[in-house]
Design a binder for these strands. Sequence first.
DNA 1: TTAATAAAAGACAAAAATATCTTTTATTAT
DNA 2: ATAATAAAAGATATTTTTGTCTTTTATTAA
Lengths: 144, 144
Amino acid sequence: MFSKTCEYAIRAMIFIAQKTKEGDIRIGIKDIASGIDSPEYFIAKILQELSRKGLVQSVKGPNGGFYLDHSSLQQSLADVVRAVDGDKIFEGCGLGLKQCSEKCPCPIHHDFKRIRKDLYRTLEKSKLGNFTEELDKQLLFLRR
Amino acid sequence: MFSKTCEYAIRAMIFIAQKTKEGDIRIGIKDIASGIDSPEYFIAKILQELSRKGLVQSVKGPNGGFYLDHSSLQQSLADVVRAVDGDKIFEGCGLGLKQCSEKCPCPIHHDFKRIRKDLYRTLEKSKLGNFTEELDKQLLFLRR
DNA sequence: TTAATAAAAGACAAAAATATCTTTTATTAT
DNA sequence: ATAATAAAAGATATTTTTGTCTTTTATTAA
Ligand code: FES
Ligand code: FES
């Protein structure tokens, strides 16, 4: 469904959101990596990219690390997916035709459209900051 | 969503189903490749594998090629997906946790479950032989 | 029986995704 | 100012996916 990169990105962003909301000023890359059980160097690269795009904030140096500002906390999972994987998943043809088209639909087009829309709406409604409480209560998990 | 391999596989299988139902005894790899606009050698490899697994039938030599027997025509797209990509898409965690679990759900688990189920049911209900008529009428397409 | 045909099998190549390591830069505390 | 810290940037490595080419095997038609 999503690339590994994207899976890590979503988990990391939700993790940072949680820590930010819990009151941690900033969270370091090592804590993120262990918090979501991902390769440290790899998630560093991913966050670097997301930082460049402004989806996450960071500061260097002692006590530095990543955090989410007020507006970033309101970003949706769809925004993260789009930033990492592009919108192939939201717009592309499920059977790999050059483009999804109503006029020249592939055999799964009509069903796929519905499923894709459901996926999109769901991700669009899920804001990074929405999971903090349940994560804290251990009703949701980012690693296992 | 699906791997390239899987996208080609589905298109090819539906294409073979169409040709088989139209009355062509067998259809050659070149015709398949051009019929679904895929790399010839690549789709050959894919069908080789599906043939080994019994999802498609083939014969070598002059007038040889691929076809679907009566029971293969009733195979679903889900069967093809499972044969090619495994059941990660149907069973795995959407955020890449080691396994999808009701007890330790990831943040998108509940929504993802619904979407995944919709996808699965849709693919399960779609039989390879179901698209022939609409393909013939050019209401559906396998290339563009 | 022989030559032609077409898929199977196996080897190889290129590209993309995933992962790791090193050096540089910005920031902070001393 | 200096040393320590932590992310940014850049380079490199590994694995997986995608794509191609060559040789072998089975089948058929002449
Ligand atoms: S054409 Fe394939 S999903 Fe729309
Ligand atoms: S735990 Fe992630 S989808 Fe079920």
